[in-house]
Simulated assay, not measured.
Amino acid sequence: MLMWRKLEHYRRAWRPLFISVFFALLALGLYLGMRPTPPPAAYSWQASFYHGGGIFALTLLSFLAFARWPWWLRAVLLTLVGVAVEMVQALHPTRTTDWHDIVANSTGLVIGLLLIGGYQYMLRRQTA
């Protein structure tokens, strides 16, 4: 049970790095999502992996950087990021919007939120 407390110590100690990495990944995701040419994808599942994996990583990093955000705020902000990228893609003639991307974003977000909730549950259970 000591493991959860040690993980929380590391999260707090490395918070400035997590903030920097969160904003760097957010900027990279916005750039790749909003540029006129799509990133290369040899298979159809790769685009969904880019979307879901990116939002999943941002969800985890948002917790590591900003742990006091409530889950619903984290969900709303990252959903807005995903929707904004899709809206900008609709404006580019070389890009297309796809509902599968929104589903992949939502899946990555939900999995990330579940992992964060499990971590918080285990941390509360240890301190109780």
Rank of each mutant, 00 (worst) to 15 (best):
M1A: 08
L2A: 13
L2D: 15
R5K: 06
K6P: 01
L7P: 15
E8M: 15
E8F: 15
H9D: 08
Y10F: 14
R11W: 04
R12D: 12
W14H: 12
R15C: 04
P16K: 02
L17T: 13
L17Q: 08
I19W: 09
I19E: 08
I19M: 10
F23Q: 10
A24E: 03
L25V: 15
L25M: 06
L25G: 05
L26T: 04
G29L: 07
L30C: 04
L32V: 07
M34K: 01
R35F: 11
P39M: 09
A41C: 11
A41G: 06
A42W: 12
Y43D: 12
S44D: 12
W45Y: 11
S48E: 06
G52S: 01
G53K: 01
G53S: 00
G53I: 02
G54V: 06
G54Y: 02
I55W: 02
F56L: 02
F56P: 00
A57R: 03
L58Q: 06
T59R: 03
L60V: 14
S62E: 08
F63M: 02
F63W: 13
L64F: 11
F66G: 09
A67E: 07
W69N: 11
W72Q: 15
W72N: 10
L73V: 15
L73P: 09
A75L: 12
A75R: 00
V76K: 08
V76H: 04
L77Q: 06
L77F: 15
T79F: 14
T79K: 02
L80T: 04
L80R: 05
G82M: 02
G82R: 01
V83Y: 05
A84R: 00
A84H: 04
A84W: 11
V85W: 07
M87T: 05
A90Y: 09
L91K: 11
H92W: 14
H92N: 04
H92R: 02
H92Y: 06
T97Y: 08
D98A: 08
D98E: 05
H100P: 00
D101V: 07
A104T: 03
N105I: 02
S106V: 07
S106E: 03
T107I: 11
G108K: 01
G108T: 00
L109Y: 05
I111M: 09
G112Q: 02
G112F: 02
G112K: 03
G118H: 09
G118Q: 06
Y119M: 06
Y119S: 05
Q120K: 14
Y121T: 06
R124V: 00
R124L: 09
T127S: 09
A128G: 14
